[in-house]
Design a protein around this nucleic acid. Structure first.
Lengths: 355, 355
DNA sequence: GTGAAAGCGCTAACAA
DNA sequence: TTGTTAGCGCTTTCAC
């Protein structure tokens, strides 16, 4: 019933076109140096037989897979509570597929999975990896670098050991935070509070840094640690109001936190933005546009970030194969190696009504 | 610098353990029939060399890939606006990895991608596919069935041509809707409106059916078509209030729609649930718990749905390989073929305060 | 129970 | 320009 018809091989196509396997291979792979009439004959044979190359056989000899792993470390459910992750994936997917690469998704749920992921990566199933892990103590990045797979990180990696030479893409969290706080200050606000994200994540830490850079030597009570969730935002806002009833502005580390803060402000009878101005971070549309009042926030282009990560990785992969091909010492000086370091994407301030 | 150390092969392990490649292969694949002392020797050699099997070589001969494609048709951005998709993926990922299968993610952006996906699937890169596509006119499911890859669909497929024998997993949308409406009726409400989802999606259509089943011959003005978004919910709610000012209850096709409706009700000065009771669908925590008032809704277990889809597919795949092995006519009667049809997951009513 | 050997389908030297 | 040939690393009969 579900009898699988054996798929045609190169051999079959060659026979039908009356040429050798090598020629078919050349045509299929777009190598030049095959005369037009033959190309045509082969094309037709491929068409008629519905030939599709066997990727396993191909990988076996080329050592290329046309596949990239996306590793998402997922200790908390937060990532699933906002569309961040989905947007990122979409950007990655677009870039990857437009270069004929497949996306292998590796979701990790705690430490048990780390070994599995490391093994998979070390197993040479994919040509490279895109890794999201932004926690200070995460052992995963180290494991992955150990696996020897070309990798690009999403977000500034937070670990400190000998892996400084990581390539990563991140939003300008610090700069965005500065913009937010400067806006508030420009509005004449003087008691500007900050509801942070979880400070073991570099994005949260960087936003706090940006806040501090503008605020200078600020009353420490104005900074309340939170966790990027609406519930956390509520708690933190209450705490902030209790500590500093005179607060006249709030910079929340993300939109979800801001949404929670707005609810508490309303509940406590503070008008936004008249009594307290609020700025968020992310510009997650479903959140920022739907709050009451609509949220002024720092926009980061998540999808673009994904796209850039993929692009960077693909470029590294290309260079690798090229390096291997060119043993010419003359060019060797040029193709040093992958430059480590980060690509920082700009953020933009989106004004709505909350500030 | 980035000099890739050639990974050890079966050959190398065999040499080190002083056995043949065949024996190593047996040990690595857990085949029995190798004596304990040898097993031990091989294990040690594998360990010492850090041997990891080359999946490409293995696939070449076994014709199995240990990989499953997840295809997400993505004509609209809605999927990215709620965590639905992420939860589903998580369930799938868990089930897949616990059976040593990889997840290849295929995101499609409109028709152009369909050919690409079909080609990929037909190319025999993966053992099976999990497909999300719930639109009536979607050509993708047909293409995929044409590719001859074992497939399980997420959500009741809506297309009508000769592909009735599809295997799918869906929530009990109809039953959940009935429960919602019955709750409202049980509360003594008589003018119960329904804000639908986009009716070209089976989930929305099924929920409307459920509503109708309970309501019987209902005033058609009570049904307003919407689109599963908060903005759409607002528009639909306004329309409903304009058409039927006497409405005393609303069943919204999902939580996002309900959230929009709640905003409009508040804006129009209707108390919830006193004047108008509201029930949603999905129980997306970040939405349902955060609305004002918290939303009574129909809960579906999205992650479980993903898990079951994966489980179903893996079972089919297992059976296939088993079938191939067993040419015994005696057992042939038992292993007929994959039973088509759907697995319907129950929903549960979650009472909060909106109804 | 273990090993030898024959491919799986493809690419890439090398010859012609 | 085209064809011939030798593997890529693994599984799997088939002998022993």
């Amino acid at each position: 019933m579900t009898e699988t018809v054996p798929r045609p091989t190169l051999e079959a196509v060659a026979a039908r076109a009356g040429v050798s396997r090598a020629t078919v291979s050349r045509v299929v792979n777009g190598a030049d140096g095959v005369r037009e009439p033959l190309v045509e004959r082969v094309r037709r044979a491929v068409e008629e037989l519905g030939y599709v190359p066997n990727q396993a056989a191909r990988s076996l000899v080329t050592r290329r897979h046309g596949a990239v792993a996306v590793v998402i470390a997922e200790p908390e459910t937060r990532v699933f509570a906002d569309p961040f992750f989905a947007l990122q994936l979409r950007g990655i997917s677009k870039e990857l597929t437009s270069h004929d690469n497949q996306l292998v998704l590796l979701l990790t749920e705690g430490r048990d999975d780390h070994a599995r992921v490391a093994r998979y990566l070390a197993g040479g199933h994919v040509d490279g990896a895109l890794v999201f892990s932004l926690h200070l103590d995460d052992p995963l990045p180290g494991l992955i670098q150990g696996a020897g797979v070309p990798t690009v990180f999403g977000g500034r990696p937070g670990w400190s050991d000998g892996t400084r030479d990581a390539v990563y893409v991140d939003s300008d969290n610090r700069g965005g935070a500065r913009d937010a706080v400067r806006l508030l200050a420009g509005l004449g606000r003087t008691r500007i509070g900050h509801l942070t994200g979880p400070l073991d994540q570099t994005s949260a830490a960087d936003r706090l840094d940006g806040y501090r850079e503008v605020m200078g030597d600020v009353d420490p009570r104005l900074v309340v640690e939170s966790d990027f969730t609406p519930g956390g935002g509520e708690r933190a806002m209450r705490e902030l109001l209790d500590r500093c009833p005179d607060v006249d502005a709030v910079f929340a580390a993300n939109d979800l936190t801001a949404a929670g803060a707005l609810r508490v402000l309303r509940e406590r009878g503070r008008r936004v933005p008249e009594d307290v101005a609020v700025v968020g971070f992310d510009d997650m549309l479903p959140v920022a546009e739907q709050t009451d009042p609509p949220l002024t926030t720092v926009r980061q282009d998540i999808e673009e970030m994904g796209r850039i990560m993929a692009r960077l990785l693909l470029r590294r992969l290309d260079r690798h194969t090229t390096d291997a091909a060119i043993t010419d010492p003359a060019t060797d000086a040029v193709t040093t190696d992958d430059e480590p370091g980060g690509v920082i994407l700009p953020t933009t301030l989106v004004r709505r009504t909350s500030a």
